[in-house]
């Protein structure tokens, strides 16, 4: 008899508390989402502006307008950029720049992976005199930023007559202490017994590399490929120094050369080129991501 009303008040209190908690949760949800949306807008807005800018004519941006909606000149702008290029880059077509950038990024990536795989293999699986000296000299170059050695490197490359060649553009960027270190760390996790089992099975060093080490490294190679391709594609300082002619100009340099004084810049073409410059790295990330997630699932021990 007595606890009837008490129960009722208790129930009401519990209900109120639950509702309060619910409201609090909803408030946190709103706040977190607001922050997230703000973040997305902050990061995406410049890209949106570039994307929209590339669909208007020269005049719109030159007048100081910031277009937020698509304009009618998309096809025309992209065709001009790809096929003819901007007047300021002595009309080097962006298609050529993209090919150049792609060749450079791909060869830097493949070269870096090949060199660091083999040097890490040598350092980990063979004992030879000077092994630690070799490892430490690779390791120490990791501490030096590229800019420190850029002038001696330029001198060497120009003395070899490699200015304005793919070789001059690519070879100096191939050595990679970071990738070597990464592969070394991974190779150290391969159990000794596996090496010994292969020895007893009769696999020589090259065979072991090809049949065991390489397949086990697929995941690492895929991850590095993504990182290094983007690194290669975005190279700015070195291509700026060694390319002076349009034949080997990369897209990043192309964009820089297109932008002159405010007045005579073809902003619509700059925007279109910027969008085009974005595409290959994005494509590589998306393609390789799928591949290395698959790799992660399959080779997990």
């Amino acid at each position: 008899m007595m606890h009837g009303p008490i129960d009722a008040t208790r129930l009401a209190a519990a209900e109120r508390a639950a509702m309060k908690a619910e409201a609090a949760r909803r408030r946190t949800d709103i706040v977190t989402h607001a922050i997230l949306i703000l973040g997305v807008v902050l990061f995406a807005l410049p890209i949106w502006i570039v994307l929209m800018g590339s669909t208007h004519d020269v005049g719109t941006i030159a007048r100081g307008e910031v277009p937020l909606l698509p304009g009618p000149y998309a096809v025309q702008n992209y065709l001009t950029a790809l096929g003819e290029g901007s007047a300021r880059t002595t009309r080097v077509p962006v298609a050529l720049m993209m090919v150049n950038s792609f060749i450079m990024a791909l060869l830097i990536t493949v070269g870096k992976i090949a060199i660091s795989l083999t040097s890490a293999y040598a350092v980990v699986f063979f004992s030879f005199p000077g092994r630690m000296v070799a490892f430490w000299s690779i390791f120490i170059t990791l501490m030096l930023p590229v800019e420190v050695r850029i002038f001696p490197t330029f001198k060497v490359v120009s003395d070899l007559g490699m200015i304005n060649t793919y070789g001059g553009l690519i070879i100096p960027l191939i050595a990679s202490a970071t990738a070597t270190l990464l592969f070394r760390q991974f190779f150290l996790t391969i159990p000794d017994e596996l090496v010994e089992a292969a020895k007893i099975d009769g696999a020589g060093p090259l065979r072991f590399f090809k049949d065991v080490v390489l397949p086990l490294s697929v995941t690492n190679i895929a991850a590095l490929f993504v990182i290094l391709f983007v690194y290669g594609w975005n190279q700015y300082l070195w291509p700026l120094l060694v390319t002076t002619s349009g034949d080997v100009e990369t897209i990043v340099i192309g964009i820089v050369r297109m932008i002159g004084s405010e007045a005579d810049t073809d902003w619509n073409l700059v925007m279109a080129t910027a969008v085009l410059a974005l595409l290959p790295p994005v494509a590589v990330v998306i393609l390789m991501q799928r591949w290395f997630v698959k790799g992660l699932v399959e080779t997990e021990k």
């Binding site: 159990p191 596996l194 010994e196 292969a198 020895k199 007893i200 009769g202 399959e298 080779t299």
Partner: peptide
Amino acid sequence: EPKDRDIAMVFQNYALYPHMSVFDNMAYG
């Protein structure tokens, strides 16, 4: 060298090649 001794060894942690199928593991030698 081990390969020229005509021996076979079974290891404590099995030392199977993780990326190869059972068939390939056995057929490798």
